[in-house]
Amino acid sequence: MLYRVEGIVIRSMDYGEGNAIITLCTENAGKVGVLVRGAKKVKSRHAALIQLFTTGEFVFFRNNGGLGTLNAGEITKSHHPLREDLVKAAYASYACELLDRVLHDEETGSFWFRQLTACLNALEEDKEPGIIINVFEMKILQAAGYGPQLDNCIVCGLDKPDEELRVSPRLGGVLCRSCRHNDPPAMEISPRALKLLRLFAALDLTRLGNVDVKEGTRAELKKIMRAFMDHQLGLKLKSQNFLDQLDKYNI
């Protein structure tokens, strides 16, 4: 069957001699793998189509839901500035790998195509990368069924003043003073950071404008969201390891 889809390249790998297999997050066909013959050969007309973050129209044959074979393609946005900047490339790669690892084929669709498009555009537009990724992570957690409970204590369900709350990545939400014994290592959280996490949970990336966040709060959000991702999803991502290296050397 012939498919014509708009998609974003979220993974690209060499296959055989001169070929490549790309994974696309598409607007209307879920997440699909497509074989691109001859893409790695010199002067291949498809060489640019297999680059990470590339958005385009892809035409491919696929039988019985298996691997497709590319017939034609046209780039609508290359996102080459992301690939030319080390930090932007690292964050964009993390977003793509996270989506690829967490969501199954049938779970992707127009919503995730829009979310990833907004994420890549925001990174390219020099918006704060850490905040962009934190919102993206929140959406991933929610889609996977692990969205944190941030409005009420996750144990007793009572609404308490923000100053009394801690956040428990292990339990998946906030804890009031009376319930802290359920998770003694629960993390302290400032009212400002908690307010932003609630904002991240309520909004999606297509509606996120410029958010002015102080450096200390950004660091706090990053630490908390990393803890949520580690406890709730437990993924070992190559792109996350690279981001950790960037942090180590303050890049």
Rank of each mutant, 00 (worst) to 15 (best):
Asn63His: 13
Leu67Asp: 08
Leu82Ala: 15
Ala186His: 06
Phe60Ala: 05
Phe53Gln: 00
Arg180His: 00
Asn182Leu: 14
Thr55Lys: 11
Asp247Met: 12
Lys238Pro: 04
Tyr15Phe: 13
Gly68Thr: 14
Ala72Thr: 11
Ala89Cys: 14
Tyr249Cys: 02
Glu124Thr: 12
Asp85Gln: 13
Arg11Ile: 10
Glu164Phe: 04
Asn19Met: 08
Leu70Val: 13
Leu203Pro: 02
Ser168Tyr: 02
Ser110Thr: 08
Ser178Asp: 03
Ser12Pro: 11
Leu233Lys: 05
Tyr94Lys: 12
Tyr91Cys: 09
Ala20Glu: 12
Ala122Arg: 05
Pro148Ala: 07
Leu123Arg: 02
His181Ala: 11
Arg198Met: 01
Glu125His: 13
Asp85Thr: 13
Val9Ala: 06
Ser110Asn: 03
Leu203Ile: 12
Lys139Phe: 10
Glu74Met: 15
Ser239Pro: 01
Tyr3Asn: 09
Asn210Ala: 15
Val167His: 01
Leu197Cys: 06
Glu163Ala: 05
Glu74Ile: 15
Val167Asp: 03
Gly172Trp: 04
Ile22Val: 15
Leu165Gln: 01
Lys236Phe: 07
Thr217Gly: 05
Met225Pro: 00
Gly172Cys: 01
Ser168Ile: 06
Met187Leu: 12
Asn121Leu: 08
Glu188Lys: 11
Thr54Leu: 11
Leu158His: 09
Glu107Ser: 11
Ala29Phe: 05
Ala89Phe: 15
Ile8Tyr: 04
Gln240Ile: 07
Phe111Lys: 08
Glu137Phe: 11
Arg192Lys: 09
Ser178Leu: 07
Gly172Ala: 01
Arg62Ala: 14
Val36Leu: 13
Phe136Trp: 11
Ser78Asn: 15
Ser178Trp: 00
Leu203Asp: 03
Arg114Ala: 08
Arg207Lys: 12
Ile50Val: 15
Val135Tyr: 01
Trp112His: 02
